[in-house]
């Protein structure tokens, strides 16, 4: 090994690394275990665009990462409803010009003019679903349709609870449990909220989003706060669980593909969004992740398992779900404080 050869290697490498911003690429920032690899491969085949993907496990983690300097290196991300609004207000989203998206007409009417992105200027609908929790029926056989399972658990379930490590959804579910409004500025209510989650934390085994399915399948947890589709996957993988629609209410959400500001491959991002507005493509995501798409013509393409899954079909007695609200800065700072005190 001569020094000459060493320097050649290094020079070659530096060159390669410098040329990383080539054409024909798409850089996706996505939730974990959500989009099937087969679909990404098919997109690459059809368009010749090379796809790379990084994953995150909560809206807040994605925001923190983008704010920490990765904005400008991704083309698209998949934030939930309230996070789209936050990112829009922070100026982190690029605007999709009228007519740029060929398949925009495929968006279902009810998801076109949404509060968090009126007129869909920055985003397209991806999937929507709900967040509550699933209970292992072999461990606990009684009524589970109450948020007590998480915030005031019966003795049989204490210490066997996993909750999602997501600030927005967990605090919204806790607010529903207490019957207080979201974005409350009332000090008594906020104190109560903080005390409730901190008292409940004593009975929680873990805060785990990536592993939310695995802990239910492996039996490490008997109750798991979870998204409905992820819960369905856990059930299919053998967890003897039932997904609950608690009487106090539960969280509903819609994830959206957004065009990020300073996207290095903006054109390819638009192509990708158009690709995901084709019913057969987005149906593949639904069949994989067990959620519901927001695109017309998807229903006939869904598997029977998905159509009939208990996670997809709330009982008639279930109340309506609630979206997570975006608070003003002053109030949000208080909720951030509650979360920090909970996590510490």
């Amino acid at each position: 090994m001569t020094f000459g050869r060493l320097t050649t290697t290094v020079a070659a490498l530096t060159f390669c690394a410098g040329g990383a911003l080539a054409e024909g690429k798409l850089s996706i920032y996505h939730w974990f275990e959500y989009i099937p690899q087969e679909l990404l491969d098919r997109f690459s085949e059809e368009t010749g665009i090379e796809v790379t993907m990084d994953t995150y496990d909560s809206n807040e983690a994605m925001l923190a990462s983008l704010k920490g300097g990765t904005l400008g290196s991704y083309d698209v991300a998949v934030p939930g409803d309230y996070m789209v609004q936050i990112m829009r207000d922070e100026g982190m989203l690029d605007t999709i010009a009228e007519g740029e998206l060929i398949n925009k007409a495929n968006i279902e009417e009810q998801w076109l003019n949404v509060d968090f992105d009126p007129g869909r200027m920055h985003s397209i609908p991806y999937q929507w679903g709900s967040t509550s929790f699933a209970v292992n029926r072999e461990v606990y056989a009684e009524d589970i349709d109450t948020t007590d399972m998480i915030f005031n658990p019966p003795d049989a379930l204490k210490g066997k609870i996993n909750v999602l490590d997501t600030q927005g959804e967990l605090l919204a579910l806790a607010s529903l449990h207490l019957g207080i409004p979201q974005c409350s500025a009332d000090r008594e209510q906020l104190k109560k909220l903080s005390e409730t989650v901190n008292a409940a934390k004593a009975h929680w085994a873990s805060f785990n989003s990536d592993g939310a399915k695995d802990v239910l399948v492996s039996g490490d947890a008997a109750v798991g706060m979870i998204w409905n589709g992820f819960g369905a996957k856990a059930r299919v993988e053998g967890a003897p669980i039932e997904y609950a629609y608690p009487k106090e209410g539960y969280v509903v959400w819609m994830d959206n593909v957004v065009l990020l500001k300073d996207a290095p491959n903006r054109d390819n991002a638009i192509k990708f969004m158009d690709f995901l507005l084709e019913p057969e493509n987005i149906a593949e995501v639904s069949n994989f992740a067990q959620y519901t798409a927001g695109v017309k013509g998807v229903t006939p393409l869904l598997t029977d398992d998905l159509k009939s899954s208990p996670e997809q079909n709330p009982p008639a007695s279930a109340p309506a779900g609630t979206f997570v609200k975006v608070c003003d800065q002053e109030t949000q700072a208080l909720y951030d404080a509650i979360w920090t005190r909970l996590k510490k």
């Binding site: 983690a61 990462s65 785990n208």
Partner: peptide
């Protein structure tokens, strides 16, 4: 250790890579 037996490393990591985002 899971999320309940944090050591210094986990606390630091959460500030930069996790949702805390407090550099």
């Amino acid at each position: 250790g899971g999320a309940k037996n944090w050591m210094i490393g986990s606390l630091i990591e959460d500030q930069f890579k996790g949702a805390a985002g407090n550099w």
